[in-house]
Amino acid sequence: MSAPLVVARGLTRILTGEIETTLVDGVDLDIAAGEFLAITGPSGSGKSSLLYLLGLLDEPTRGELAIDGRETSRLREEARADLRLSTLGFVFQFHFLLPEFSALDNVMLPMRAFGRLSDRQMTAQARDLLASLGLEAHMGKRPDQMSGGQRQRVAIARALANRPKLILADEPTGNLDSHSTEQVLAILRKLVDETKTSVAIVTHDLSLAAQADRRVHVVDGRLAPHAAPSNPA
């Protein structure tokens, strides 16, 4: 059996200040390659904070986190940024596309930052990605010229731009209608099945969580011992 893609041990995040707040408390979590993991929990339970730690956007106060076999707790900011760029992809509830750039340019942004492909290769790959998400007709449009679902699909395409091993999605369907939600879910599922990319998704959506391979439930920053698939929220 191959080693897990993500190994978190005792992952803890405490916000210091006048009142100390524990966001994530001693989480042990493995994510296997090609696994679709749903992270559920009530609002304020720390599921997004856990996702940000897993995505190296935040630094744990304690604990260890290895991604793709690389221990990250002692990495410097630049190395963490490089690991995010090469290995991780993010999809947020809000699309967070750069407003002055076209869909194609937004998708090419991480590729250009990575700098491994030629201009022609980047353009071809970005076009393929957008086409695979049904956005052939919208490549030249700016975010304000697209619908919410289209923007979110562009955001997914951008997350996939550098062929990451793990996609981290924070309520990716939170702002979408049911049709767009189904589309996004189908895309993520297909991604896991066809490319063996791992997906960790934070969601309130029960139907979405039900389609994951595994679900972990977060309460007060800790993983609940027994997740209840029928009642995640």
Binding site: E77, E78, A81, D82, R84, L85, F90, F96, L109, A113
Partner: peptide, 16 residues
Amino acid sequence: TRDIAIMKSLGLREST
């Protein structure tokens, strides 16, 4: 500010 946050989350270095 928001664009900066997203660029950093995508993996752009501080120096970039």
